[in-house]
Design a protein around this nucleic acid. Structure first.
Lengths: 126, 126
DNA sequence: CCGAATCCTCTTGGATACTG
DNA sequence: CAGTATCCAAGAGGATTCGG
């Protein structure tokens, strides 16, 4: 499949399009991207994730991890030690998503100056 | 720059990281992605965009277009005809973002079956 | 046709306190 | 350490109405 095969919604393809939107909406929520990046080098424990992702609350970390687990993108390993330990890790499918995600992150990093300048220019023009 | 150069937040890099997050949050909002895809083949008029992006309200289309314009990712051309006509188009910077975005869309399209199966399996297990 | 403005709803998400 | 439960505020976003 090539990029040009992906056509958004001529009405007839609309039904096919919905699952894709569901997936994109999940990926594009507030925290999923950052969890992905945080897990890119291997398993990470719950509180380590929490420290690594600046500003995320315990609640949202839990919720987002559960959703990603449900989608089969990350796996959860519970060690019944005392104190308990839980590792989160990308699955094979999750790792296959890492390339596009990192491409986005790389783009954002490369273009932040351009964008900030565009904003300043826009704000002072009006 | 390679992918491995992008490290998320060792505390010392935290300040550098914030602009990147701002940009990602913009890209990853509910509608920006779809506007990008809709504009990938050239200029599109306001109401054509509205029809093309299923479910978007006039309000959110306007707001999202304004934000993307402020970031220098799309341009707006107003033809003072009657009735008026306004074309939206990706800028050069915007087009450079198209590749990573389409990679994501392609991934979502290729993996929707896998994800839906993972969801069903997860939901029936518990 | 292309919006701006208002109103109102519902989701998102933070703060806090409590369990195993 | 790794959660769960509850409460509450802020903002996203839809519906509708009006203007150029």
């Amino acid at each position: 499949m090539t990029l040009s095969d992906i056509e958004f919604p001529t009405p007839s393809e609309d039904a096919d399009c919905r699952p894709v939107r569901e997936i994109l909406d999940r990926i594009a929520d507030k925290w999923s991207l950052y969890i992905f990046v945080a897990l890119k080098d291997g398993p990470v424990r719950f509180n380590a994730l929490r420290r690594q992702i600046d500003g995320i609350s315990q609640r949202m970390l839990t919720i987002t991890l559960r959703q990603l687990e449900r989608d089969g993108l990350i796996s959860r390993t519970h060690f019944p030690t005392i104190p308990p330990r839980v590792d989160y890790e990308l699955t094979a499918v999750g790792r296959s998503l890492l390339a596009p995600v990192m491409a986005l992150v790389t783009w954002a990093d490369s273009n932040r100056d351009v964008i900030e300048q565009a904003r300043r220019q826009h704000d002072q023009t009006r």
